[in-house]
Every structure is written in C-alpha cells, then in structure tokens.
Amino acid sequence: MRSRHILIDTDTASDDAVALIMALRNKEVTVAAITVVAGNVGVDQATRNALYTTELCGSDVPVFRGADKPLSRSLEIADWFHGSDGLGDHGYMPTRREAERDHAVSAILKIIATRPGIEIITLGSLTNLALALREKPSLVADVSRCVVMGGAPCCEGNVTPAAEFNIWVDPEAARIVFHSGLPIEMIGWQLSRGSAVFDTLDIAKLKRFGSPLADFTISANRVAIEANKIQTGQIGIALPDPVAMGILLRPGLCLESGDHYVDIETASELTRGMTVVDRLNVAHDPRNCIVWSETLKREARIKICWKLDVERWKALVMEALR
C-alpha cells in the first residue's frame, strides 16, 4: 500500500541520484513530485540529472525546475566534488523526459495544498522551500515531516570549517526554513562519514549485483570518491542524501535524536551557513537570550539525528540498487 506521499527537493548530483532511486523504488511511498534547485550544479544541469535518474527507474514522476540562484547571494557550485555534470562526468545518455512547465515553487505550493500531511525531503539548498514559505507561510500546517539533508551540527563542515554545503550555499533561505515552524528533522553531513561510507567491500558488492542502478551509482560517484579521499582521507563513497532518504523512509534508522534550538549564521563570512545548535540548552541564559531571542520566541526546536543505524541503512540502499 502506498499511503505516504513525499515531495523531494534536490540539486541533483551524484548522491542525490542515489537518494532519488531509493524513493522511486520504494513501494511504501508515492513520490508526488521532484523539485529542483541550483546548488551542487546549476539548476538546468540538476534538472537534467533528476530527469535522467527518474528515467533509469522507469518513473514518470513530474520534475519541476526551480530557483536558479540563492535568495540574495550568487551561486557557487560544487563541481569539484561531483564532476562538471554533477554525475561524475561518466557521459550518460541525454534524457528523453522533459521538466514540467510550472516553476518548482508553484508546484510546491500546489502539491502541499492538495496533499495535506505530505512529507518533504530536501537534498539541496533551501531556496525553493524558502520562497514557497514566503509566498504562503501557512503551508507549514499541511506538512507532516520535513527531512533536511544539511548542516554540520556540533562538528566540522565540508565546505568551510564551519559549514555544510547545502546550508552554506543559501544561508538566508536556510534561516527562513529553520524559523518557519516546519517539523524539521535535520540530517547532518557527519552521519554519512566513518563506517557509513560505502567502502571498497561495499562497492565490490554493488559491482557483483551487475544491475544498471548499481553500475550507475558507481560511475556517477567516480569524481566524488576522489574528492572524498582528498577531503576526509577515507576511501569510498559518502552518501549524505541517501542517509536522509533512508531516515525519511524508515524513521527507525535514526537511533538517537534530540530536539534543539538551531540558528543559521548569515552575517559572518568566516562562519557563513554554520548550523549553530544549542545542544546544552544555554540559549535561555541571560548572556545568550538577546542573540537567540528570534529562535526562542518561535519555540521552534529542530529534531537532530545524532546516530544512524549504519548496518540497516546500508542494507536499505543496497536493496534499492539491486
């Protein structure tokens, strides 16, 4: 029974594509739409990548092109990590599918209005969702979950020492979404590191599948493997978006979580896009309460996942690619 409806917002590059495959092949959820935003790559490339991935899965889910740049900053892409086409430059065939005519923001507004209780997952910067919230703040009431792949809670970032890429790209948009009252589950970048990295053994296992989706995953992440090795010293494929998708599909994969005040740094250049987490509950302290007043007043705590059930998550990813 497909009873759960989900909307995926993505800046489709290598690990986004794996997350899309997981959702499109899952029998328990219906993907109502894929909305695309600029981030890892430009919005046109990301849209082509999303369409190509849906085609690989034999899905005709509507794909909507969205914001081509952050709210007020210029776009800085991550081709150094994902390859210039976002999919490892492995030379995939041009897609036959086309994006819908509507803008992603219009689509988000319409789809939420017609499917109350929908679950949203964001795999890229939060520009589309922020624009939708500014057009209709009340959409919050019709969203039952909002899983955000983004941030580096209480740890180092992957684009600056302070920040994770998705939040860093458009920190103003992230701030709007984090302050909106949406039921956010924040899936930080760090969950995809360490034992969660698809190592050489996991990759060998994928190769033995011999399935088109497993082969695609390996070739689409070719550049990412190199970049990950340079950045973290770990050999293998880090898959932050599939971690978020896993938790969306199976909430039990998150073994430890907590509700915290979170704010996004938008002023400083040094710490731009940092997800500042009040882990020890000190925001109320008189020394902090002025700076934190905006967050405190909204009483919007963010659910942060601190620990992933790595073994069961990897099994879920493998199952989708088999």
Partner: peptide
C-alpha cells in the same frame, strides 16, 4: 524575504 521583527528588536 529575510528581515524580521525579532531581528529588528535585536
């Protein structure tokens, strides 16, 4: 878009 009453108070 970004500005808020709370940020203004601060």
């Amino acid at each position: 878009l970004v500005n808020t009453r709370e940020a203004t108070e601060v």
